[in-house]
Design a protein around this nucleic acid. Structure first.
Lengths: 247, 247
DNA sequence: CGCCTTCTTGAAGGATCTCAAGAAGGGTGG
DNA sequence: CCACCCTTCTTGAGATCCTTCAAGAAGGCG
């Protein structure tokens, strides 16, 4: 915990990408207290049902929100990359209804609810920015329902690859592209509601289309083709300019 | 549109069930302008991708948020009952990424964003209440991902019956219960990511367990048994007292 | 070198889907 | 008041997708 928080610059960037904030508001974000923690791969940093008094910001790494059915089959209900705040909603709902787990080694900044609430009550635009970020996460989760509910295996995986490519803001100017997606095939299965075996077979089928996933790297020879297979339409990610986002 | 909005009492009740509001704040909610509209069964009142300048409150009826895959297979990504505001999030994200459709004849109150924003900027607690309501919806959507991703057909339907029973606050003091759920088997299929035919067969299997769904009426002889089959655990609905919700 | 995680492959079974057609109502117009 | 149409529900049969179980291969790491 320190007065200076250069790390929160990334958080500020995220907020201002969708919400215009004035100088004072921007400074209020940068001055938020926080506490960094390293989280090893496959370890929880927020437990299921836990009552939390801080929200977690992903500074480095990849984080999943985990739930499970009665038989212990796991379902990842959202993925969070550097710059995301997976449980910003805990500010207004401190009882966590899902667990948060690092899929790859990650660095988490814990920001106390008290400080976040302070900022949002002092600056209504900050409150609005927080709410808006949560709204985008909700919109993504909604599309995950469609993905898992109404697409076949290949399309589910392709859709996920598209979504994460956009969220990582991978360069799509050329036909081909590649980016790191630090998960295992088993993680992919948990995110798409499939078995690990079937993910493996679907990945083989995707390979025939010029889409490979190996050692946590997505490699695509024809971006457009991937979007077709995944039935991908990026509006829901709300990645436009802040001017378009606001009224 | 009128000065008096007795209809918004239901909205206020919802908000105060999770967030404490003072007299002035409560009055601000009741004084919100609104415009009532009747919506026929199976007709959209918010179109996909439409940019809206008002949020919709369900006064009467049942509403679904609809998405679809490329082949036109529909997926309902959330259900909303009287008292819900299905697109409250549009206040901070006016571009609708899903359509809203009435599953049964419904009465909708349209509340202008300008008025909602006014209230939330004047009274931070109202802003917090709005955000919290959206958070609950997001939490429900998250559980739908688990439902559709990791449960078999019978359990998916049973889970939905449990969830809607709780949300309607159906009396569970006795063993048996029944409540109206004004949807068709085809709607049920769209909500659970199944085909209509398989929903029909799964309902027959549920009948053998004392659970019937007929003419838009859910009838359960043993509530506990339904919860078991649906692997239902109600925490995510955040139906506790406001004192438990807050910090 | 040996263990552990991850990926790969085979085979069989089960869940769910699609196509197709018929039954059961409810509403409407003649 | 009846005939017809439309929506919803039901049923059958075959195909397909996906799962489970099981075992082996390929690496990375201590």
């Amino acid at each position: 915990m320190s007065e200076q928080q250069p790390d929160l610059k990334l958080f500020l960037d995220r907020l201002t990408s969708r919400t215009a904030l004035c100088k004072e508001e921007r400074e209020a974000i940068l001055k938020l207290p926080s506490h960094a923690a390293h989280v090893r791969q496959n370890s929880d940093f927020v437990g299921l049902g836990e009552r939390v008094d801080h929200a977690c910001f992903v500074l480095v790494g990849l984080v999943g929100r985990f739930d499970q059915n009665i038989r212990g089959n796991r379902q990842i209900t959202s993925l969070h990359i550097a710059g995301d705040m997976p449980d910003l909603h805990s500010v207004v709902q401190p009882q966590a209804s899902s667990a948060l787990q690092a899929l790859a080694h990650s660095i988490i900044l814990r920001v106390p609810h008290t400080a976040l609430r302070d900022a949002m009550f002092r600056y209504p635009a900050i409150g609005e920015a927080f709410w808006r970020e949560c709204t985008v996460d909700a919109s993504i989760t909604t599309q995950w329902v469609v993905n898992v509910g109404r697409r076949e295996a290949k399309a589910r995986i392709a859709h996920l690859f598209c979504e994460m490519g956009w969220r990582y803001r991978v360069d799509r100017t050329g036909k081909s592209m590649s980016y790191r997606l630090d998960m295992t095939q088993a993680h992919l299965a948990d995110a798409t509601g499939l078995s690990a075996v079937h993910v493996n077979r679907s990945l083989m089928a995707l390979r025939a289309e010029g889409i490979t996933f190996k050692d946590g790297e997505v490699r695509v020879s024809d971006w457009q083709r991937l979007a077709e297979i995944g039935e991908f339409e990026p509006n829901y990610l709300m990645l436009g300019e802040p001017s378009e986002m606001q009224r």
